[in-house]
């Protein structure tokens, strides 16, 4: 079992790059511990900014830094970053076209028993609806590192959501195919397409393995780039399979499933099943307990895939 959370992978990349790039600035809202960024604050105090528990200030200050040529990474729990400072993300980052990388930590239902105030099951929908805003949900630590390296090379704002807990590796250090803004084909298949993002990619991969044992060939797409969505990858896969399953740690509205359904409906109509969290405060539990309860696991995804192609 991997012990490295994706947030730690972000810190490792920033620590390495900040040695030679003095424009990298990390900002936290009393969240450096939760963000695994405390080591950055120790190693690079001149490139670190603490704003206190003030998410609007966090994003506004980041935008000001970016407008003066800095490369700010603003890290705060996704639940607050994507709601409390939503307008700053919209106006100061996206609309003003500032190069702010918004790191939503402990995303989705990572905070489990802390309740709905601490869940961010609306962030994909909210952030994706903002013109100029990009939205990324990397699946494992290797992909997270490659994504952050790629984001350091561009000059545009983006929202990146990662979970709190370590997740199983989808890839390996030596084998993590990554092309910016292109979905990764995790498993090739011909019967059913499974499109997933973030923490749902690993169970989707496992589901494909379960389906293979029953003679069903599933293609799994790691859609870490929710916006800009890799439409071509969806169309290419959905055109050859019988049905599409979208899986996400998000509300059932406006997230990956909605986007996938739009693309398939417009381009290669066939059945799309959207697997997501319910439109309700979720049941109390750890991420695994919650995912299992709602069927957002390998068995649940495999069952939906069978149902979809048999319909």
């Amino acid at each position: 079992m991997n012990k490295v959370p994706n947030r730690k992978a972000i810190c490792d990349v920033l620590m390495e790059k900040a040695k030679t790039d003095k424009d990298i600035v990390v900002l936290c809202s009393d969240s450096r511990g939760s963000a695994s960024l405390a080591p950055f604050f120790v190693a690079f105090p001149e490139q670190s900014v603490e704003v206190g528990i003030a998410e609007q200030d966090l994003v506004g200050i980041s935008a000001g830094l970016a407008s003066a040529g800095k490369k700010p990474f603003a890290a705060s729990p996704a639940c607050f970053l994507s709601t409390r400072s939503y307008e700053q993300c919209k106006v100061d980052v996206a609309y003003s076209r500032t190069n702010v990388k918004l790191i939503g930590i402990s995303g989705g239902i990572s905070y489990g028993a802390l309740g709905m105030s601490h869940h961010s099951a609306q962030d994909i929908a909210a952030m994706s609806a903002i013109p100029n805003m990009r939205v990324y949900l990397p699946s494992d630590r290797f992909q997270t590192a490659k994504l952050i390296e790629a984001l350091l090379e561009d000059q545009q704002g983006a929202y990146i959501r990662v979970g709190r807990n370590p997740v199983e590796d989808v890839y390996t250090e030596d084998n993590c195919p990554f092309e910016m803004d292109k979905a990764t084909v995790v498993t090739e298949g011909t019967d059913v397409t499974i499109v997933a993002c973030g923490e749902m990619v690993y169970p989707a991969k496992q589901a494909a393995e379960l389906l293979a044992k029953e003679g069903i060939s599933a293609e799994v797409l790691d859609m870490y780039c929710v916006k800009p969505l890799d439409k071509e990858a969806i169309i290419k896969s959905a055109s050859k399979t019988k049905a599409v399953i979208a899986v996400e740690e998000h509300s059932p509205f406006g997230g990956l499933g909605s986007m996938v359904a739009q693309v398939v409906g417009e381009n290669c109509p066939k059945r799309v099943i959207c697997m997501a969290l319910p439109d309700a405060p979720v049941i109390t539990g750890t991420s695994k307990e919650v995912f299992d309860y709602y069927g957002l696991n390998a068995e649940g995804i495999a069952a939906k895939a069978k149902e979809a192609i048999q319909a």
Binding site: V25, E46, Q47, V49, Q56, D57, V59, G60, I61, S62, A63, G64, L65, A66, S67, A68, G69, K70, P72, E87, Q88, V91, D92
Partner: peptide, 15 residues
């Protein structure tokens, strides 16, 4: 929105 943004600009100038 302006004051936080201006704080960021001023911090960048100092850095």
């Amino acid at each position: 929105h302006g004051l936080p943004v201006a704080v960021g600009m001023a911090l960048a100038g100092r850095m």
